[in-house]
Design a protein around this nucleic acid. Structure first.
Length: 476
RNA sequence: GCCCCCAUCGUCUAGAGGCCUAGGACACAGCCCUUUCAAGGCUGCGGCGGGGAUUCGAAUUCCCCUGGGGGCACCA
């Protein structure tokens, strides 16, 4: 087989969507698996909806996901000449014809047909225009569109790699518009010329394109092109089983990045949406490349499950080294305004270490560690439930004394001394540690206590212990 | 309305006629570990949409129904 060439061809009308990312990923995996070429092409022929920002956003997202492309990004708007050439060629051979019907006229006729419960198909009014009538239209200043002359007999078969053979009656297709009145090609035409020119061997895309495929195949044949292979991926759905969209929550890849998802986790999760390899759920990237095949792509649509993505993200966060995690965490802290001069690199690494298995998203670090960066805010509930218990002031005083002793302020040593105190007081560990936790963090839930005390530093820890004692006294 | 696609736990899926008493993962519940929360371990809950047909035997093959999705633009 010739060298495999695939492409991802988004239209730049918004951010890179989860579904688009999945399509890009499958193309990329297929290319990498076969040592082929992955091409990025921007389908920007919809001039009213395409924007430069969207192009940048898509490219950014692709980079973040590490879906590197070998050729491109190509832009369809740069290739207008080619479409023109091919359209002229088809016009000359009778495979296409000019149509002077205006959108308004068409809309009217479409409506009328629908009212009579007839299926609308372009009525070929302009197919039989005489040269004189044509000239008259031109003189009126009408700009024609170019329509494909669609055969009304026979059938077109797609040999799809995931759907199998799909048969369409040509009679159900109509003479669709290839080139708009302004000379810009429509999707169905541009995509065919591009895929041919770029020697695409496999077209892997969402199955929302399945019903467009026969039109495109007919176009390939009319233009004398070799028809490529097709693989139509099942849609990604929201919880209500409709096509995944903003209504269902975040769908932009960059939103996940900003929430603190790791690209590797997103990739792994996306790979499982429509593809599977036995019972396995966690795949390293090279494993994905090695194991990916179109044959293992499922036919049925998949519901996007944010909960599973979250879980998987946690798995990937736990796989990070402490150094890597510390580096990734910093921007999230900074963004939340949580910074403090006194904390050095090592401090952040320790923070990463003690929060690692508690993070499901990088952004979780904010809620988990904010008390390190500003005054304690005692949660009323925590004060009520823990600090106001019998004997707590005494316990906190004893802890304060213990931590005031001169010793190296490390978690191991802190733990040793506090456990000794617990022993000495003859209390259950929990009875001592929970009040201490609330005293130094303001709440009942926190990272591991002794490490937290260490990271707070002796001064702050003692200060907060004292503050807690005051609060209790004042309440009484 | 017309055309096309799809159908196993709530979700992602394994399953290509007997290995299925339908397996795994997420979620959920319980227990263990434990200074909290996590993480981890164990256990549990939970499914082949319905009807025919083929077969000694069907989640697996075929047909119909139902349900869901997609397309039918001078959008892609």
């Amino acid at each position: 087989m010739d060298k495999i060439r695939v492409r991802f061809a988004p239209s730049p009308t918004g951010y890179l969507h989860i579904g688009g990312a999945r399509t890009a990923l499958f193309n990329w995996l297929f290319a990498r698996h076969h040592g082929g070429v992955f091409i990025l092409r921007i389908e920007d022929t919809d001039r009213s909806r395409s924007t430069e920002e969207a192009i940048h956003a898509i490219i950014e997202a692709m980079r973040w996901l590490n879906l590197n492309w070998d050729e491109g990004p190509f832009r369809q708007m740069d290739r207008l000449g080619r479409y023109n050439e091919e359209a002229e060629r088809l016009l000359a051979s009778g495979g296409a014809y000019k149509c002077y019907c205006t959108p308004e006229e068409l809309e009217e006729r479409r409506k009328a047909a629908l009212e009579k419960k007839e299926t609308w198909k372009y009525d070929r009014r302009c197919l039989t225009l005489t040269e004189q009538e044509r000239l008259a239209c031109e003189l009126e200043g009408k700009k024609p569109v170019i329509r494909f002359y669609c055969p009304d007999e026979g059938e077109t078969v797609i040999g799809d790699h995931v759907k199998g053979n799909v048969v369409f009656e040509n009679a159900n297709l109509d003479d669709f518009i290839m080139v708009r009145a302004d000379g810009i090609p429509t999707y169905n035409f541009a995509v065919v010329v591009d895929d041919h020119d770029m020697q695409i061997t496999h077209i892997i895309r969402g199955d929302d394109h399945l019903s467009n495929t026969p039109r495109q195949i007919l176009l390939y044949q009319a233009l004398g092109y070799e028809v490529p292979e097709f693989a139509h991926l099942p849609m990604i759905l929201g919880p209500d089983k409709t096509r995944l969209s903003k209504r269902h929550g975040a769908t932009a890849v960059e939103a996940y990045r900003d929430e603190g998802y790791l690209s590797k986790a997103l990739i792994n999760y996306l790979a499982l949406l429509g593809w599977g390899y036995g019972d396995q759920t966690i795949f390293a990237l090279d494993e994905l490349i090695k194991k990916f095949s179109l044959g293992d792509v499922g036919k049925s649509p998949a519901v996007f499950d944010p909960a599973k993505l979250e879980w998987m993200n946690g798995v990937y966060i736990r796989e990070l080294s402490v150094d890597e995690l510390a580096l990734l965490l910093k921007p999230f802290l900074k963004n939340a305004g949580l910074t403090l001069e006194m904390y050095d690199e090592d401090w952040y690494k320790r923070l990463a270490e003690i929060t690692q298995e508690r993070l499901t998203k990088l952004s979780d670090i904010v809620g988990l560690s904010d008390f390190f960066f500003h005054r304690v805010e005692y949660q009323p509930e925590a004060v009520e439930k823990v600090l106001k218990k019998e004997g707590v002031p005494d316990i906190l005083r004893r802890v304060l004394e213990t931590l005031s002793d001169s010793f190296d302020f490390y978690s191991d040593e802190i733990e040793k001394r506090l456990r000794a105190l617990v022993e000495q007081m003859g209390l259950k560990p929990k009875l001592v540690f929970q009040p201490v936790r609330v005293a130094v963090t303001g709440r009942t839930v926190s990272p591991p206590l002794f490490e937290t005390i260490e990271l707070l530093g002796r001064d702050t820890a003692l200060e907060r212990l004292g503050e807690a004692i005051n609060i209790i006294n004042m309440a009484n």
